[in-house]
Write a protein that binds this DNA or RNA. Structure first.
Length: 317
DNA sequence: AAAGCGTGGCC
DNA sequence: TGGCCAAGCTT
């Protein structure tokens, strides 16, 4: 299967990865320094424990899509205790997954994870696939998550590029304060150029550069004084120039937004174990137009269902 | 392909 | 205070 079928980007990343596999990383010192630092400074996180399952890795990656580590950890352990395999999750109604998602945010991810569990059960005998294209074919899994699971759960050699990785490469390699807007092909190529040849070392490096971006080379206030690659950093060498690339899209204000209204309705649906009435929903938000727009959106997304006229609940099945 | 999608912590 | 940010994905 052609990986580019999943994207308009004219890059054959499979060929890219196999070509890179035959060569040493472009900056072996940089890669080695980051991995060595990781060996000494990696946080003790659940998904880094020995014996953590591929399913656990997949669940953690879903939860970590846009939600900070510290908020994920307690939900993840509850989740895996309750649903230790994909089949266990697939056997309950999607609304149960949405309820257990609690306040992690972006509850569509819970729906997608539930759908992916069903697909894994049906297509892959209940075993999380290890092939990137098989992973990409699952609902809610994109370029980052597919490669993260293949690399971290199965030890395969793939470039794993997340927002932390992009930032570290932008600074250390490119010499810019912030990365340009994400570009699938360019990002995979840049990471491939740094990736160690050995699969195990590559998996470590993927985690290591993410970790460096998460706790040292941070977005707001990078701790350059304790950075293990400060002497090799192109941004430092250039005198820490300010970012001058294209402006990033501003995140819209949450207060008063449709997203806030959706969140209030979802919180109500999660909190009650019986259908919620129109009257109860009215009490959540004063603006009727915005309220009905939010509710219609939740119904369209499958996050809520109508149990009978004027009554709503989480999806039952 | 730009926009939409939650929630909470931080400075 | 309020804007910014957080292991992205889908349409």
């Amino acid at each position: 299967m052609n990986v580019t079928a999943h994207s308009a980007a004219p890059v054959d990343s499979a060929a890219l990865e196999s070509a890179a596999a035959e060569t040493a990383p472009a900056s072996p010192d940089l890669s080695r320094s980051i991995s060595l630092w990781f060996g000494e400074n990696a946080r003790d996180l659940p998904w880094r424990r020995d014996g953590f399952s591929a399913w656990g890795t997949l669940v953690s990656e879903f939860m970590l899509q846009q939600t900070p580590v510290n908020r994920v950890i307690p939900r993840l352990s509850e989740w895996l205790e309750r649903w230790p395999t994909p089949k266990d999750l697939a056997s309950v109604p999607p609304g149960e997954a949405v309820r257990a998602w609690a306040s992690l945010g972006y509850p569509r991810r819970a729906l997608w994870l539930h759908a992916a569990a069903g697909q894994i059960t049906e297509r892959h005998g209940g075993i999380v696939p290890e092939d990137v294209d098989d992973l990409l074919a699952l609902t809610g899994i994109g370029d980052y998550t597919a490669r993260a699971v293949a690399a971290f759960a199965y030890g395969h050699r793939h470039p794993v590029v997340d927002t932390n990785t992009r930032r570290v490469i932008a600074r250390a390699v490119t010499g810019q304060a912030e990365p340009a807007p994400p570009s699938r092909g360019r990002d995979l190529e840049a990471m491939s150029a740094l990736l160690p040849a050995e699969p195990a070392a590559a998996a470590v490096f993927n985690a290591a550069i993410m970790e460096l971006g998460a706790i040292v080379c941070t977005s707001r206030s990078p701790r350059c004084a304790v950075c293990p690659i400060q002497d090799a950093c192109a941004w430092r060498a250039a005198g820490y120039p300010a970012y001058d690339g294209p402006k990033k899209a501003v995140q819209k204000k949450f207060e008063g937004s449709d997203r806030q209204v959706r969140g209030l309705i979802m919180a109500e649906l999660r909190a009650t174990h019986h259908p919620v009435t129109d009257a109860e929903i009215e009490g959540l938000w004063p603006d009727a137009v915005q309220r009905s727009r939010a509710l219609a959106g939740l119904l369209a997304d499958g996050l809520a269902v109508t149990t009978e006229p004027g009554m709503y609940a989480l999806s039952q099945g």
